[in-house]
């Protein structure tokens, strides 16, 4: 018994040491692949930017993508922002009236909508739909050799596939955000009226006093950045797909997860700098 425990002692220590070294190596690999990923996405973005800069743009395909990626997201964006505006108003209006701040409700609702909720919700909703679609489409093109076929015809996948998607999102996401802003505020206005008897005029004048044109522009600037992120992450995941149909599935889910996380992080960073958090 004692002999065994003696011989086990150093083994356990060695095992613990191996495990912790293994864990460290694992962390190292993760950190490494994180930077590799960021590097890859950035390189793709650089190449896309260069293509746009040289005006090597496929206009008809870009318009087509505007329709596919942008217009077809309109309904889902309108619905999510309408109900978000409404619930926000529901939570704040009644309380505000109770404490005598009823005249601020319009400001609060539109302020949060235009600066934060509008751009971010729209981006998240579009990411769920579009980032997945881009990753799945490009991923299945990789596994069926269509990307290699494109290259063999002397066509660059970045110019042919990535740039039209990126441009269309840079145009359509801000547009969708405008719709989201408007419908969110309108939903809030309606609920404030129905639940807390705040008149439409009071709501609007409070909104007008609180938010300026600058807030709208900054919100839209965020959407442009989100649009770029959605297109680049989806394309990168798609183009780096390996291993058949299962690989396409994996790329698609990771594209959405990574994209949404990046949107949240970038939203914070941009708000910090745009709205002077420091």
């Amino acid at each position: 018994m004692s002999v065994r425990s003696e011989s086990e002692g150093p083994n356990i220590e060695a095992a613990v040491e191996r495990a912790s070294v293994g864990a460290l190596e694992g962390v190292g690999r993760k950190v490494n692949s994180f930077f590799e990923y960021i590097g890859g996405v950035t390189a793709l973005g650089g190449e896309a930017a260069l293509t746009i800069f040289r005006l090597r743009i496929r206009f008809s395909e870009t318009v087509n993508q505007c329709f596919l990626l942008g217009y077809q997201s309109l309904i889902i964006v309108l619905l999510t922002s309408l109900f978000t505006g409404m619930v926000f108003s529901l939570e704040s209006a009644v309380q505000a009236v109770q404490y005598g701040f009823g005249s601020f409700v319009g400001g609060i609702v539109s302020y949060t909508n235009v600066r934060e909720l509008g751009p971010m919700l729209t981006a998240v909703v579009v990411a769920g739909r579009v980032c997945a679609a881009i990753a799945a489409e490009l991923g299945s093109m990789v596994v069926t050799e269509q990307i290699e076929a494109l290259q063999s015809l002397g066509l660059a996948p970045v110019r042919f596939l990535v740039v039209p998607r990126m441009l269309s999102l840079m145009i359509m996401l801000p547009l969708l955000t405008v719709f989201a802003d408007v419908i969110g505020v309108m939903g809030g206005q309606w609920i404030a009226h129905a639940q807390a008897h705040i008149s439409y005029d009071d709501f609007m004048s409070s909104a007008r006093q609180t938010i300026g044109f600058e807030d709208v522009v900054k919100g839209l600037f965020k959407s442009v950045i989100f649009g770029i992120i959605i297109a680049l992450v989806g394309s990168y995941q798609g183009l780096t797909t390996r291993g058949g149909a299962a690989g396409v599935g994996k790329s698609t889910t990771s594209a959405v997860v990574i994209c949404i996380i990046m949107i949240f992080i970038l939203n914070f960073i941009m708000s910090y700098f745009l709205y002077g958090g420091g």
């Binding site: 093109m141 069926t144 050799e145 269509q146 290699e148 076929a149 290259q151 063999s152 002397g154």
Partner: peptide
Amino acid sequence: ESELIEMRTKIGFAFQFAALFD
């Protein structure tokens, strides 16, 4: 990459599984 693209315009490639753009 740009030189490769230029080179490939003068080479035809018929893929084993066709690889048409679907």
